[in-house]
Computed example of a mutant assay.
Amino acid sequence: MHHHGHSHANDDEKHEHPVTSRKRMLWAVILTASFMLVEVIGGLVSGSLALLADAGHMLTDAAALLLAFYAMTLSAKPADSKRTFGYGRLQVLAAYTNGIFLILLTAWIVWESIQRFYQPNPIQSTTMLIVAVLGLLVNLVVFKILHSASDSNINVRSALLHVLGDLLGSVGAIIAALIIWQWGILWVDPLLSIFVSVLILRSAYHVIKDSSHILLEGKPQELDNQQIRHDLLQIEGVLDIHHMHLWSISEQEPLMTFHALIQEDFKGDDMIDVMLEVLRVKHGLIHATIQIERSNCVENTEAVACVDTAIK
């Protein structure tokens, strides 16, 4: 026979993104979209593929940043009857989508660059240099705006990678403009475009890898399930920990469920409190669902109730 302790807390609380973070993202969208138009004009006037490629990249950047801003706004909404975990995973979906866009963009840049090797176009190096320098300044500002919020948010980090790709593109365009101005070597323009594309592709791979891991209910990278099990078994009265599952809604919301076999003379509710405290203090887990058992767990033999406790 199973005995189950119960303890409940409010599961509807969400980790909202600060309003300042959303404002920063909105400013990043406005700056990126505005300068994208400048680069399109500059690329057409100068004949530079590097500038046009960077303008195309900034177009996807503006879309990526807008998508990230929209996801940040929706993720702050509380859970409802249809989405009991809320909207936090929208940010992961946005990051994954941005990663796919990055790969498609780099494929286009590489293809255009190869064509330019065979059919080089005349380039106005002075116009190219001026626009590239302005682009570098704008990208540095946007990078600074987003960098402080990127460490713990895969959505912001994926948007930041777009901006980093733009920043590298601007540096490449400046170098290409100087070389063309000094020596007239036109093939350096598509060559640097390919180099920047490879760097962007590498970043896109990591964004897609990290977001896919979350979407596939993978274990949060920073958590060690064997160490968690070991720490729980050190609690007096805990005989076994099994059926452990670790996953996350977003990078900021790791979740865990497990069954705990305890000794008969220990109270279930007290044991739950102790286990939750260990999870919170030692591993930073703020939400765990625990099923208390007093005999070995036998699956599919009877309906059981679970304990759902969220730590503030």
Rank of each mutant, 00 (worst) to 15 (best):
A159L: 10
L246P: 04
L51D: 05
A310H: 12
I241H: 01
T126D: 14
K82G: 11
H243A: 08
D12Q: 12
V196A: 06
V274T: 14
H206P: 02
L261K: 11
G135S: 09
P18C: 09
A310R: 13
V45G: 03
Q291R: 08
Q91S: 07
V281E: 15
A79H: 08
Y205P: 00
L201H: 07
K23M: 15
C297Y: 15
F143E: 12
Q221W: 07
A55L: 03
M1C: 08
R202N: 12
A68G: 01
I214G: 01
A62H: 04
W187K: 02
G268R: 10
T301Y: 09
K209S: 15
G268N: 15
D12Y: 09
D166N: 06
S158W: 12
G47Y: 10
L216H: 06
G218C: 05
L104W: 05
S75P: 00
L199H: 01
D11I: 10
L37K: 03
A310P: 05
L199T: 13
I185G: 03
I179G: 04
M1T: 10
L136G: 02
G56E: 04
I174P: 03
L186W: 08
T60C: 00
W187I: 12
A62C: 05
G56I: 05
S81W: 04
G135F: 00
F85G: 06
W247P: 01
I123D: 06
L26Q: 12
S125G: 09
G135D: 10
P190M: 01
V133N: 10
H15R: 09
L93C: 03
K267A: 14
I30A: 05
V307Y: 08
R116A: 05
W183S: 09
W111E: 15
R157L: 15
H15S: 09
L276V: 08
A173R: 00
S46T: 15
L167F: 10
V19I: 11
L216A: 13
S48A: 09
P254I: 08
Q182A: 07
V45S: 04
W27A: 06
L90G: 04
A159H: 06
T301F: 11
L93I: 13
P18D: 15
R280I: 08
L44R: 05
D265H: 09
Q91C: 04
A33Q: 03
H206K: 09
L31Y: 08
Q263S: 14
I103Y: 00
H8W: 14
V142P: 01
G169K: 03
V45I: 13
L146G: 01
V163G: 00
W183K: 10
S158P: 01
A50L: 03
L44N: 07
I262G: 04
V138F: 13
A107V: 09
I311P: 02
L134F: 14
S212W: 06
P254N: 12
G86Y: 07
K219L: 10
H206I: 11
N155D: 15
L233G: 08
H17I: 04
P78W: 08
V278P: 00
L239D: 14
V141I: 12
N10E: 13
L285G: 05
R294F: 12
Q91F: 00
L246R: 07
I286L: 13
S81Q: 14
E236H: 14
I311H: 13
L201W: 13
D189I: 03
D308P: 02
A63M: 07
K267N: 14
L167Q: 03
Y96R: 01
A173T: 09
G88C: 00
V110M: 11
I194A: 02
G86R: 01
E112H: 02
H206A: 03
G169A: 05
E112G: 02
I228Y: 07
